[in-house]
């Protein structure tokens, strides 16, 4: 039994990811002296907090068996509208934030509706939604950035700080805390609530989930709505961090968030993945980008790293799954629906 537990641990992608992170950290620590300092690490955490929060939402959608490309556009829209309301209409803080979050949830639910009711494949539905929301944002904003954010929005919120002997200030700020809260909430949601477990079940075998009576439609709305919410939180925090709202600032972050989640072990075919894994995925990508920067390698190189990450990690996942399948039982009709299921299945209604 102990041996089984050890083997199980070995198979978890998080363990391997952690090993890679330690290795990369050690190498970068030696090669780039500024890397392994508290200030740099905390700075790194803050830079990637927004992406990490959005990754939490995306992780939920991935577990449910879907995919979403539109969340960065959702975040931009939620952010811009909230900032607009706060600056131009003078809306009170909580109200502006509330509207921003509602916009995120609403756009997420719209995705869910397109996927569940209209039955558009999630990738096409969300690409279309991304195009519509982002284009409308650019049209109505005219591409203009908003700089005059109210003070309550841009004021640093420091939870803890320390000064190193050489005067470097290290501060644990709101984005970092928000990221940790988002991770904790997502972890609790996915491991400790019946809905979260149903999302795992649906991602693992949608037909079986339907048969045991899970409400597939509700689950879709929860997953995409949750991602919309997290995207909006990320968008609002982004404005807090940089003190301005640029309509296309977050455009194109979807791919790096997606690759972080995939790298962290979230399966694109659904049902598999964990919050610590996704966080580690973000950490690894952040370390690579920051480390390459410190080493003087062009930041343009980063997108190549992302592309390779997606290609290699997905290929390995699929190939190793296939290998394991062959080792198990050759005569077993895994993956192909059994005859009974296909014969009696009516056209999807």
């Amino acid at each position: 039994m102990r041996e089984g537990a050890l083997r199980r641990l070995q198979r978890r992608p998080e363990v391997w990811l952690l090993a890679v992170i330690v290795l990369v950290g050690a190498i970068l620590g030696v090669a780039a002296p500024g890397f392994l300092t508290l200030a740099n690490i905390v700075d790194l955490l803050e830079t990637y907090s927004v992406q990490a929060i959005m990754a939490m939402g995306l992780f939920v959608v991935l577990v449910s068996g879907g995919i979403d490309i539109s969340f960065a556009a959702t975040a931009s829209v939620a952010q811009y509208v909230a900032v607009l309301l706060a600056t131009r209409a003078g809306l009170a803080g909580p109200l502006a934030i509330g509207v921003g979050l509602l916009i995120g949830i609403g756009l997420g639910c719209l995705n869910a509706a397109l996927i569940h009711f209209v039955r558009i494949t999630s990738i096409i539905a969300t690409i279309a939604m991304m195009s519509v929301t982002f284009s409308l944002l650019m049209y109505f904003s005219g591409g203009r950035s908003l700089y005059d954010l109210p003070e309550w929005w841009t004021d640093r919120v420091v939870f803890w700080q320390t000064e190193s002997p050489n005067g470097d200030l290290t501060r644990i700020t709101l984005p970092i805390v928000a990221m940790l809260v988002a991770a904790l909430v997502t972890w609790l949601f996915m491991t400790r609530t019946p809905i979260g477990r149903q999302l795992y079940a649906m991602g693992g075998n949608p037909e079986a989930a339907r048969r045991i009576g899970a409400n597939i439609g509700m689950l879709q709305f929860v997953a995409y709505g949750y991602l919309g919410f997290m995207a909006a939180v990320g968008g609002l925090l982004q404005a807090h961090r940089v003190g301005e709202s640029v309509p296309n600032a977050m455009y194109n972050t979807e791919l790096s968030v997606l690759s972080a989640a995939v790298l962290g072990g979230a399966s694109l075919s659904g049902g598999i993945g964990s919050v610590p894994g996704v966080l580690l995925g973000i950490v690894l990508l952040a370390m690579l980008q920051n480390g390459l920067n410190l080493l003087g390698v062009s930041s343009y190189f980063f997108q190549i790293v992302i592309g390779l990450t997606i290609l290699i990690s997905t290929s390995i996942t699929v190939l190793s799954a296939r290998k394991r399948r062959r080792h198990r039982n050759p005569s077993e009709p895994l993956g192909t629906p059994t005859l009974g299921a296909t014969t009696q299945e009516p056209a999807r209604v």
Binding site: R197, Q198, A208, R211, I272
Partner: peptide
Amino acid sequence: QDLSLFPNLTVAENVAIEGHL
């Protein structure tokens, strides 16, 4: 016949899956 199990979940959770509903 296809058993309708959840391959990604543990034996215990598969057995008790209806507790989630």
